[in-house]
């Protein structure tokens, strides 16, 4: 009896690697592997090069925690046009991107790389709070904006930081992202808690 033939080992290894990627199942992994091989030369070698380069070049900036290049440095920390008096604290490095897209913030960032969650065994010492304190001790920063999420853990992290910063740096302004009505929405579409927060975070309008 002739044994049934499967893919050669090299292809199987490629499929196995692809299958480990997030969101890729066995079927997709097979399809991607075959596409990469069939199209020969360019796409697969380009992919390999890009992967190698990213792997070799990218690190997390030891100061702000955002993605940085080993040779070119951090695009955020290295930019002298940015406002050194304002610091925006976020949970993850990727949280910088939506804030940057608004174009409204020109200060610096600090990614904590996580948030407080005792049940998951994540305490203050597991977050990049020491480096945050160190940056503040340099004395340039006058305002810290806490931009952690508005869920339970995000709020708790912001509360904790507000307490810790207030105790160590009495002159520092600590602010929290405002919460309230969604843009373009009426009052009836907001729930009680959102309205409550919108009310407590209300602002004065300039008189005309």
């Amino acid at each position: 009896m002739i044994p049934a033939v499967g893919y050669p080992d090299e292809i199987r290894a490629l499929i196995a690697q692809l299958k480990r990627l997030p969101g890729v199942g066995p079927r997709s992994a097979e399809r991607i592997a075959l596409w990469l091989l069939r199209s020969r030369q360019t796409p697969s070698t380009d992919l390999a090069t890009a992967l190698n380069q990213a792997q070799a070049e990218i690190e997390l900036c030891p100061v702000c925690g955002f993605f940085a290049s080993r040779t070119a440095g951090c695009t955020l920390c290295g930019n002298s046009d940015r406002d050194v008096t304002q610091l925006c604290v976020v949970e993850q490095a990727t949280d910088v991107l939506p804030l940057e897209r608004t174009g409204a913030f020109r200060g610096h960032y600090h990614a904590l790389h996580g948030r407080l969650s005792p049940l998951d065994n994540i305490g203050p010492e597991d977050l990049r709070i020491d480096t945050l304190m160190q940056r503040l001790r340099e004395g340039f920063i006058t305002e810290v904006i806490l931009a952690t999420g508005s869920d339970v853990e995000g709020e708790a992290t912001a509360n904790y930081l507000a307490g810790a910063l207030g105790a160590s740096f009495p002159g520092l302004t600590v602010t929290r992202l405002a919460q309230g009505l969604p843009a373009g929405g009426g009052l009836d579409s907001a729930d009680d808690l959102t309205l409550l927060r919108a009310l407590s975070g209300r602002r004065r309008l300039a008189a005309h």
């Binding site: 969650s117 005792p118 049940l119 339970v152 709020e155 708790a156 509360n159 904790y160 307490g163």
Partner: peptide, 22 residues
């Protein structure tokens, strides 16, 4: 989370606990 913190340490870490109280 708050109850876990109250139970976790020999003497409660109030700074962390109060972050959850708020």
């Amino acid at each position: 989370q708050r109850n876990f913190l109250l139970k976790r340490d020999a003497s409660p870490a109030w700074a962390e606990i109060d972050a959850y109280t708020a």
